[in-house]
Design a protein around this nucleic acid. Structure first.
Length: 758
DNA sequence: GGCCAGTTTCTTTTT
DNA sequence: GAAACTGGCC
């Protein structure tokens, strides 16, 4: 029976069999984390726990999928009854069943980030504020962070700290935008990604009809994967579910602080620290033995991560025998980088008999995939790109989905805006603006605003025609199955005619994509997977379909047997492993990203990301960089990434490429690389603010609020606040001469001179 | 009032 | 390089 337990080492087995009470598993890369998690669930089921009492929360769809598959391998069909999925998908499922308690329709729409951004742009425009001060991405991220910290728009407006921070950033109206944004989402019966969490918390917090007790009774065992990537709000929900009087506290979290790469999304390491406080009786298990990689790779990973300031002490180790050293590829251009890597792949396949699927190319930004695609095609290597513009983000797919969204939820303003004039039916910008103005001033959805006598008869009848299409779809949505409805929407909307008229290559591919979407819906209604607890009949509705695909960003269209190379972002690679890994584009301003260069905390996150990337490799690791590359339409010249020299020379096959020949003086990365070949000019290094010759950094502990200080790079600034405990003081300083004047600075690293104190 | 084409702007990672 | 935007034209 328990044969699978013998496949585990001592620590792993303890982590699996300690089923009762709070458990924390700190798991280094390749230490068998997923194995522990899945075996733990399997063990619970074999010990007699009904599978439907187990809730397993993951962070990405990919992780959820893999977990389900692996549980199924051990326990078979029972796996289907375990609630395993991403935070977002599990909670949207719950919200759908309980939406009435929040005043939302069960057919609520889910706004993706594109919808959110369009909405924000519209709000900014209506408020009449300078739009260059309110880039949608920045505003959305501010709102998202607020939501992730359980700050509603009302609380935001009353929070003087946030308000003054926004004022420093010259974005004083954010609180107002947040308010309008929230109200307009609610009006449209729509939730954005963060709302799925925030409203779940509200649901459990307000506890109408004792709804939280229902789920507490139901989920006796809760597991959270990648706990280091959860934010405050996600943990708050988990606590709401598991921490109450007489709770068995059967909560198991698995994570690795060194692999925290989603702080930009509000993930916080303090959740791990809080967990110890909240569940003092917890049992902790550390998995440090790496079963994945050869020693050079493991040591390199340890080298890299040791450059980070904050970390839970842990050293991964391996019993593997020495394998290949890490190879560096230095190219002159991005094309050459890709060409040489494609060549190396061919060589690896011959020399080590690797299949395509044993090999992955990892990059920092999805845009980098292009050049590699070209070169791989030249070598006749078949590949698959993970992420990037996913299937569901293609225009034609989003268009048809917008019709379907309107069919179940006609008040969805963003869907309305998207397709009211697609295919073209003579409803242009001006008309839409009029409708939206009425809608906003009266606080009604566009769907109702079109009825107001604000338009001339011609446009009015055009809008009526559009509305009647949606009405037909809406009426049919109750009786028709999802597939028939989608087909009807395709025809009725005029999309079929529009796409059929286009015989260009792109047009054909659009048609194929829509057909693929329709096939997907057909598959969805025909699959016999029965979801637990779903009201009979509703689970195959178009609404359920929309909910499930709204949260899918990666697409899983292959059967898994295809032998293809994988190209993906370093983020997407988390949790995966490959015999040979190429981490490419290792250049300053790319990996690490230029976005990180002013903040030590972001730089640490980039480093953790690099750590994640290199620890995907089992046998062969190659790191590449290029002197020049096409970026954003122009040629750029970047220095090799600082991360390259954070790995000790002994782990490299060809360290000269970054450490320089022994004879060269200094041997810094830059002199070694740019010395032999120069294309055009090198860009200027960061322009420094004029600094007096007698600059002398002051002792960080003497810096106080209100002081004027001088920073080597940012110039003069005023200290707005100092937080944190010695020696980790963090100051918020306002630098007038900087593009983003308000900066948070770790005092122990910063070179700051006090100009005058109070 | 709407549409197209030329022009400008902004560059990350994911649910 | 692509998406968003603006201005001129029908």
């Amino acid at each position: 029976m328990n044969t699978f337990l013998s496949q585990l080492n001592d620590v792993q087995r303890k982590a699996v069999t300690q089923t009762e009470g709070p458990v924390m598993v700190i798991a280094g890369p390749g230490s068998g984390k997923t194995r522990v998690l899945t075996f733990r669930i399997a063990h619970l089921i074999q010990s007699g726990v009904p599978p439907q009492q187990i809730l397993a929360l993951t962070f990405t769809n990919k992780a959820a999928r893999e977990m389900k598959e692996r549980i199924a391998k051990v326990v078979g069909d029972a796996a289907g009854k375990v609630w395993a999925g991403t935070f977002h998908s599990i909670f949207s499922r719950i919200l759908r069943m309980e939406s009435d308690k929040l005043g939302y329709p069960s057919t609520f729409s889910i706004y993706d980030s594109e919808d959110s951004k369009t909405l924000i742009k519209d709000i900014v425009k209506n408020l009449g504020v300078e739009k260059s001060n309110y880039p949608p991405n920045a505003v959305l991220s501010r709102i998202s962070h607020a939501k992730s910290n359980l700050i509603t728009w009302k609380a935001y407006g009353n929070n003087s700290e946030l308000i003054s921070r926004d004022q420093l950033d010259k974005r004083p109206m954010i609180y107002k935008i947040y308010e309008h944004y929230s109200k307009r989402c609610e009006k449209a019966g729509a939730m954005d990604f963060d709302d799925l969490l925030l409203l779940t918390f509200r649901l459990f917090y307000e506890n109408k009809d004792q709804v939280v007790e229902k789920y507490r009774r139901r989920f006796k065992y809760v597991l959270v994967d990648e706990f280091q990537d959860t934010n405050f709000l996600q943990y708050a929900i988990v606590k709401r579910l598991t921490r109450y009087k007489e709770s068995p506290n059967n909560l198991c979290i698995v994570g690795d602080d060194a692999q925290s790469i989603y702080a930009f999304r509000g993930a916080t390491i303090s959740n791990i620290l809080d967990f110890k406080k909240d569940f003092p009786e917890l049992k902790t298990y550390k998995l440090e033995q790496n079963y994945r990689s050869t020693p050079h790779i493991v040591d390199a990973a340890n080298n890299v991560i040791s450059h980070n300031q904050k970390q839970i002490k842990k050293k991964i180790w391996t019993q593997h025998h020495a394998g290949s050293k890490i190879q560096i590829v230095k190219a002159l251009s991005d094309t050459e980088e890709a060409r040489r890597i494609a060549g190396m792949i061919v060589e690896y396949k011959n020399r080590y008999h690797y299949s395509n699927k044993d090999i992955a190319i990892l990059y920092r930004t999805n845009a980098q995939s292009r050049v590699f695609e070209e070169q791989l095609r030249r070598q006749n290597l078949s590949y698959k790109i993970y992420g990037g513009l996913s299937f569901y983000q293609r225009k034609e797919i989003k268009d048809l989905m917008a019709y379907l969204r309107l069919a179940v939820n006609p008040v969805d303003d963003e869907a309305f805006r998207r397709v009211v004039n697609y295919p073209r039916r003579g409803i242009g910008k001006t008309t839409l603006e009029k409708v939206m103005t009425v809608a906003n001033t009266e606080g009604i959805p566009a769907w109702e605003a079109v009825e107001r006598p604000i338009l001339n008869s011609r446009t009015s009848s055009l809008l009526k025609r559009f509305k009647s299409i949606i009405q037909t779809l809406n009426e049919q949505s109750a009786s028709m199955n999802a597939y028939d409805l989608a087909n009807l929407a395709y025809k009725k909307s005029g999309m079929l005619a529009e796409l059929s008229a286009d015989n260009s290559i792109e047009g054909m591919s659009r048609r194929e994509n829509v057909t693929a979407l329709l096939d997907g819906i057909k598959e969805f209604i025909e699959s016999d997977e029965q979801l637990e607890d779903m009201p009979e009949g509703t689970d195959k509705s178009i609404s359920t379909y929309l909910q499930s695909v709204a949260l899918i960003t990666d697409f899983d269209d292959d059967d898994g047997d295809e032998d293809r190379l994988l190209l993906m972002s370093a983020h997407a690679s988390k949790g995966l492993e490959f015999k040979a890994v190429f981490v490419v584009g290792l250049e300053e301003n790319l990996f690490p990203s230029f976005m990180a260069k002013d903040s030590p905390a972001s730089m640490d996150e980039e480093r953790r990301l690099f750590y994640v990337a290199i620890t995907r490799a089992m046998e062969q690791l190659t790191l590449s960089f290029s002197n020049s590359r096409y970026q954003y339409g122009t040629m750029r010249y970047n220095d090799p990434s600082r991360f390259l020299t954070e790995i000790e020379a002994e782990h490299y096959l060809n360290p000269d490429l970054i450490y320089g020949e022994k004879s060269t003086t200094g041997g810094t990365a830059r002199s070694a690389v740019s010395g032999d070949f120069k294309i055009g000019r090198k860009p200027k290094k960061n322009v420094q603010v004029a600094v007096p010759v007698d600059f002398k950094p002051s002792n960080p502990s003497e810096i106080r609020e209100g002081m004027k200080v001088l920073h080597l790079r940012f110039g003069e600034g005023e200290v707005k606040s100092v937080e944190g405990k010695s020696p980790n003081f963090v100051a918020t300083i306002y630098f007038e001469n900087s593009d983003s004047p308000s900066k948070r600075i770790m005092l122990k690293f910063a070179k700051l001179q006090i100009l005058n104190g109070k």
